[in-house]
């Protein structure tokens, strides 16, 4: 799910930037350091929308000359929840199941959470093919899944998802 949050961050700025463009530099540095990153607490920072406040810079007492600025900014974050239903694109398939991606989130669907009618077919690369041969799951397939478990790393959120439920399954592909 996506949220709009107001967060704080302390940025160290090199003295060469202490000039008329200081605000611009801080903004750029903030975006470079936060967008696309992931925290276990808030999930992925998708976009910084607004810099709300830049605190007074404090010169660091370590002879480096850098100054620290407390920045308050608004951003959009993506944080998965258990039970959330997501549309995702399959990125790789193996005999344990398949990996899919929903925006920044990586999902894994194990073989046990794929409907039983799907069987692994490795004759042309790996893919899970339904018994009637009508649907297949291969890289590029779009699937709708429900998150059943989440693992938080300092730099990554990893989800376990299920496709074995009503209203979940293959919904299309990149190729059609």
């Amino acid at each position: 799910m996506f949220y709009y949050l107001t967060l704080h961050k302390s940025l160290d700025i090199h003295p060469k930037h202490f000039g008329p463009k200081l605000r611009e530099v801080i903004r750029e540095k903030l975006i470079a350091e936060t967008e696309g990153t992931c925290t276990g607490k808030y999930g992925y920072v998708v976009a910084v929308t607004k810099v709300e406040d830049i605190g007074r810079g404090r010169i660091r007492q370590d002879q480096s000359g850098y100054a620290s600025f407390e920045v308050t900014y608004g951003c959009i974050v993506c944080r998965p929840y258990k039970g959330e239903v997501l549309d995702a694109v399959v990125t790789s398939v193996n005999k344990m199941g398949f990996f899919a991606q929903a925006g920044p989130l990586q999902l894994f669907v194990t073989q046990h959470l794929i409907p039983e009618e799907f069987e692994l077919d490795s004759s042309t690369g790996n893919s899970w093919v339904s018994v009637d041969q009508a649907t297949s799951i291969q890289p590029g397939t779009h699937v709708r899944v429900r998150i059943v478990g989440i693992k938080y790393d300092p730099t990554e959120v990893f989800c376990i998802a299920s496709m074995k439920e009503d209203y979940l399954g293959v919904i299309g592909s990149d190729f059609s």
Binding site: F108, T110, H112, L113, V148, D153, I160, S162
Partner: peptide, 14 residues
């Protein structure tokens, strides 16, 4: 589902 989800956790390491 829960059982399997836990198993999936188990597969997922670190």
């Amino acid at each position: 589902l829960d059982e399997v989800a836990e198993e999936a956790y188990a597969e997922y390491e670190a």
